[in-house]
């Protein structure tokens, strides 16, 4: 693996686009005839709209957020794969440069097969080869995203994609948390409404009076209104 490490550590003066010659080097590498996967690195490094990215994620919302983020950042060839069936065949057909996969997906092990030598399949290179890269691995693991790089890509470009994915994943988690809170709030409303109904019927109260009673009881007992409402519902079930 030392060859690859050296390659990943390769530094290039910034501010240069990729030349035609460099493009052909990259194309050559994408053909993947290099069985060891340790070919020489393309010296390019600008964000590359031709980079083909596959997102393997069973959560369509999160995959969409990731895809949008990648497109906004100028990555135009982004494909989503939501199904684990024939995953490898689909990936081979798509032939992506980068695969992003949710860490919570058992399908992740299927991708490991691509790292095996095989005459039919080009041998991809794992991104997390450079052991000095622990911080970014850690961040990816924490965010629940794992990236596999097919072919030889420069670390800087991968890092930018990964950073973007991590921030998108975190944004998704925040969104999910907000949705959960909103759902909880809605559920609470329903419980309180039903408890009001029980009280209105049993004690012949108006809606306002029923709510006032719940609120007063909650204050007296130092509990949340929804907890009192739940107790009312439980009790009314018992009295049925």
């Amino acid at each position: 693996m030392t060859g690859l490490r050296e390659r990943l550590a390769f530094k290039r003066p910034s501010g240069f686009g990729r030349s035609a010659a460099e493009n052909s080097v990259l194309a050559e590498m994408r053909k993947g005839s290099d069985q060891s996967g340790h070919g020489s690195s393309p010296p390019g490094g600008q964000r590359d709209s031709t980079l083909k990215i596959a997102i393997v994620d069973e959560s369509p919302v999160r995959a969409a957020i990731l895809e949008d983020g990648l497109r906004e950042a100028g990555f135009l060839q982004v494909e989503r794969i939501a199904e684990h069936r024939n995953l490898l065949a689909r990936i081979y057909a798509l032939d992506p440069d980068v695969i992003l996969i949710d860490l919570e997906s058992p399908s992740r092990d299927m991708l490991e097969q691509m790292f095996q030598m095989s005459r039919a399949v080009k041998r991809p290179v794992a991104m997390f080869v450079d052991q000095s890269d622990r911080a970014s691995i850690q961040a990816a693991v924490d965010a629940g995203v794992s990236a596999y790089i097919v072919g030889g890509l420069r670390k800087e470009r991968i890092t930018s994609i990964l950073d973007l994915c991590i921030s998108r994943f975190n944004a998704f988690s925040r969104l999910q948390a907000e949705l959960d809170r909103a759902k909880d709030a809605l559920d609470e409303r329903k419980v309180i409404d039903r408890a009001k109904g029980v009280l209105m019927k049993a004690k012949k109260l108006s809606e306002e009076e029923a709510y006032a009673l719940l609120r007063k009881t909650a204050m007296n007992e130092n509990k949340k209104i929804v907890d009192i409402a739940q107790s009312v519902l439980t009790a009314s079930e018992l009295f049925k």
Binding site: E104, L111, E112, R134, V141, S146
Partner: peptide, 15 residues
């Protein structure tokens, strides 16, 4: 955990 890759990676990086 859900995958051997996860187990391996999380052991490797000290999680």
């Amino acid at each position: 955990e859900v995958s051997w890759s996860n187990v391996r990676d999380k052991l490797n990086i000290g999680l």
